[in-house]
Every structure is written in C-alpha cells, then in structure tokens.
Amino acid sequence: MSKTGTVKTDFVLPIAVLTAICLVCAALLGYFNSLTAPIIADTVAAEEAKARQAVLPEADSFTELDVDLPDVLEDGTKNFVTQVYAADNGAGYVFMVTGNGYGGKGTMKLVVGLSPEGAVLSTVTQDHKETAGMGSKTADEPYRSQWVGVTAETIDTVDAVSGATISSTHYLNSMRSVFAAYALLNR
C-alpha cells in the first residue's frame, strides 16, 4: 500500500472485495448444499440399512415401528433408542441407538439386533469417539461377541473391557435401554 492512498483505495475497495468474495462463496456453498444434501441423506440412509442387514442377516426387509419411547423408560433406565425396526419375515428386531460415550454425549452409535424372544443376535458400533486402543475396544471382538445371546436377565454377565470401565458402562447403559425398549414393544 502506498502512503499516498486515498480513503477509497485504502478502505472502501479492500472491504468491498472481501465482502464480495464472502457473498459469492456463501452463495456457492448454499447452492452446492442444495445439490448434495439429498444425496448425503440417501447415503446415510443406505449406510443405516446396511448396518441393519448386518446385525440381522436373516431378515429380508424391515419396517420401522411406530413406538413412542419416553425419555426415561419405566424401570428408570434412560432411553437412548432412536428407532426400532421389525424384520418383515419375523427374524427379529433392530434397534438404532444413539448412546453416550467417553467421547461425549450421543457419540456412541450402536445398531443392535434382537431375536423375537429378546436375545441379542449381534451388535455393531456404527460410530464412536472412544479412546483409541482402550474404549474403542468396545467396538471390536471379543467384547462384541460377549453380547451374543445375552437377554435382559443376563445383562450382568458381560465383562467390561479392562481399563475402559467408563466406555463399557456407557455401552451397558445403551444395551439396558434396548432391552427396556424391547419390553415396551412386547406389551
């Protein structure tokens, strides 16, 4: 900038240019967002459908159940279940869970498949922010396979991941709410 600059070259022009760039960028992003938002929604939906299929492979197709889940379930467990799906061929139920984790509130997303009798068939951690190598083990074998066959009555038989008690407790709470939601479903 030369020292002999005027108000126009020193202030008005730079501000005008910066404002113009900001406006153009915002408009561009808004436009692209309107293009990609539906595709992103489809991708996420497809991803969830894939996870449902993974925890309940015998099912042919799913129907979302219209259940009214209160924030706190009857026996005092907090509810983390967001959606419940039933397999159309009666293979079981799939619960979509957004539970708390060590990484923060609502950061541990589970997909849980229950048999019609209410025993765990399979669980998948869709998303989590647990500490790598510690709490993250809740998303891996052998912790996950411990859950297979567990019912509401035998929930205490699952061992916590050693050194990751908080993550394991959060996981347990999410599973409690799955069983509570299942109980609600069957009434």
Binding site: M1, L13, P14
Partner: peptide
C-alpha cells in the same frame, strides 16, 4: 489488495 489478502 494487500491489506485483506489473508482473510480473502
């Protein structure tokens, strides 16, 4: 312009 280049 030089002054606002970084924000730009």
């Amino acid at each position: 312009s030089e002054k606002v280049r970084i924000p730009c």
